[in-house]
Design a protein around this nucleic acid. Structure first.
Lengths: 221, 221
DNA sequence: CTATATTTAAGTAAAAATACTTAGTTTTGT
DNA sequence: ACAAAACTAAGTATTTTTACTTAAATATAG
């Protein structure tokens, strides 16, 4: 990796400035943008694709864990390093469940910080030793799992699709266009269009992005 | 806990002396005995019940992991802190499976060392951040990566995209339409169209599916 | 068996995307 | 500072898609 492009998300400007100063002191690291709340973080990331998102948990609008979840689900290429004031069990557990690539406490040393950043930037993981006990207690085999083992059932569908529609849906989700779908299913392109139209109407979406999001939400696909 | 009684097990006298010096500099810690191999460690512990056993993995007679296993099985009250030169995956995995309470690399700072020691002495766990990736990969739910996380370099690109084009590409890959892309980037929809058009031409694709396939192939996105 | 649901597909008007071209403005590299 | 590259965006003709509606030909379920 050439230079690690970082986005900082923390609601305290002072904290951001501190981290920024620390990072920009290094070569090989560039803070390309900042955000002071979760929503802003999402926007900033959409525009300016960073390699790593350094994110605080406690933030207005949308907390850091939700931002991490969003990254894991929709932008897996943006690595996430959670930087928290707190080593509370829920925060750590939730961060890991959300798919964070790293977790550091704000009391971390500069060295540890840079080690963690380099690790996650290159596709690795880094969870500070300070939270290792929580990880061991909650995730590691052999020790009683305390945390929410919630594997959720596919959410009940508020709509019903016909067999053909499900078939069309799966092809649509493969990003195939109506012409190709029609060919593949040996039907008229007009028919494919109709199925697609009915599908969109049933799912109450108006474009491909919403469609795929909804499909993901209800674990179709 | 009054004073932490420690036994050191390492086949290098120099290493033992160094750690001993470091520890005895602290109050609240006392090195009550030492051992230079695994068997000796077991004997020493039987006589002189310490609170914590600080143990190296590579030792003659009986390696550190076996000693840890023995402690876990027969002397659960003696906490074990593995101090290894190596962050090899097997060592870490085996130590955890053997029931170690902590794992540190010999490159650890004095602060981290003391933190780890206090943690395990008081019934906690401490695994250095340097081995957190191994823990995550091997034990934590959701990341069942077993081996070879060798990350290959993205295939050389037979085309060059401008910054803006890459930006557009990533939004296109999120399945956003030109209108939304234009809004997000604050440019005219016509401009977004142009970028998208140039993009498709450069990548030699003619629809969204081919585009995403190509992007995946070259690990863009 | 037959009422209901599904699949098929054409028709139509409006909206959007495609496939370019041209061209002014801004950025960048030397 | 100057040329090249990149970004911007309008113009235009052609295709496609969208958003429906209507309606025939199956399927299927009670």
């Amino acid at each position: 990796m050439d230079v690690i492009k970082v986005v900082l998300a923390d609601d305290h400007a002072l904290v951001r400035d501190g981290i920024k100063a620390l990072l920009e002191d290094q070569n090989g690291v560039e803070v390309i943008d900042e955000a002071s709340d979760g929503k802003e973080a999402l926007e900033v990331i959409a525009k300016n694709k960073p390699d790593v998102l350094i994110v605080d948990i406690r933030m207005p609008e949308m907390n850091g864990i939700e931002v991490v979840k969003e990254m894991t689900e929709k932008h897996k290429e943006v690595k996430t390093l959670v930087l928290s004031m707190h080593d509370s069990e829920e925060y750590v557990v939730q961060s890991i469940q959300a798919g964070a690539d790293g977790y550091l406490l704000k009391g971390a040393s500069k060295d540890e910080f840079l080690k963690a950043l380099n690790n996650v930037a290159s596709g690795g993981k880094y969870f500070t030793g300070d939270v290792s006990e929580i990880i061991m207690n909650n995730f590691v085999n052999g020790t009683p799992v305390v945390s929410t083992p919630k594997k959720q059932e596919p959410e009940a569908l508020p709509f019903k699709l016909t067999k053909r529609e499900k078939q069309i849906l799966s092809l649509v989700l493969e990003l195939k266009n109506n012409k190709d779908i029609a060919e593949e299913l040996q039907i008229s392109k007009r028919t494919a269009e109709v199925h697609r139209f009915n599908l969109m109407k049933k799912l109450e979406v108006s474009n491909l992005k919403e469609l795929t999001d909804k499909a993901k939400q209800y674990k179709l696909a």
